[in-house]
């Protein structure tokens, strides 16, 4: 029990594994993990097995850009069943330079100031704590 001396060490736990890479520190940015077709270069998110563009089977995991633009959005006045966000909140489709669309909640944003075309970047978001007191984290986007 050598590491039990100084109280509990809090860890970051991803809300779901395989969708994004955790940053090394709570101040860092998560990195979205999508797919890239080795044959035609098309990107996808979430990951898939077969390229819709060229039919190639066997796509590579690819890290996606941290920045994108709001393609469209809504200000939601209520939350879907089972959600860990609070209403009202900004829900957006963010277009990344790889031409993939990411559905994400916008954070650190004035809800009246959200616009189509707005520059945004990914940020780490604490969604809840698990039974052991660890931060369960995921991603949101925020204005640049």
């Amino acid at each position: 029990m050598s590491d039990s001396g100084e109280g509990s060490t809090k860890h970051m736990v991803p809300l779901r594994a395989g969708i994004f890479r955790l940053p090394d520190t709570p101040e860092g940015k998560p990195v979205l993990l999508g797919s890239r077709c080795p044959k035609c270069g098309a990107y996808y998110f979430p990951k898939r097995h077969i390229c819709i563009g060229c039919g190639h089977d066997g796509l590579d995991e690819a890290e996606l850009s941290a920045r994108g633009k709001v393609w469209t959005y809504t200000i939601a006045g209520q939350t879907p069943p089972g959600s860990l966000v609070e209403a009202p909140y900004a829900l957006a489709v963010v277009e990344l330079p790889e031409k993939v669309a990411i559905r994400a909640v916008l954070t650190d944003v004035d809800l009246d100031a959200v616009r189509v075309g707005m520059d945004v970047e990914i940020t780490l978001a604490k969604m809840k704590e698990d039974q052991d007191g660890n931060d369960v984290v995921s991603y949101k986007f925020r204005p640049v």
């Binding site: 809300l15 779901r16 969708i19 469209t72 959005y73 809504t74 939601a76 939350t79 879907p80 069943p81 089972g82 959600s83 860990l84 966000v85 909140y89 829900l91 957006a92 489709v93 559905r103 994400a104 909640v105 189509v116 969604m127 995921s138």
Partner: peptide
């Protein structure tokens, strides 16, 4: 509940606040 498709408890999209059916139409409207 659009978020049930993940199977076994709360889905990722549901938990993230992304699985909002009127939101899909709202985003097309915006």
């Amino acid at each position: 509940d659009l978020g049930q498709s993940g199977g076994g408890g709360m889905s990722f999209a549901g938990a993230m606040g992304l699985a909002l059916l009127p939101g899909e139409y709202a985003m097309q409207a915006r």
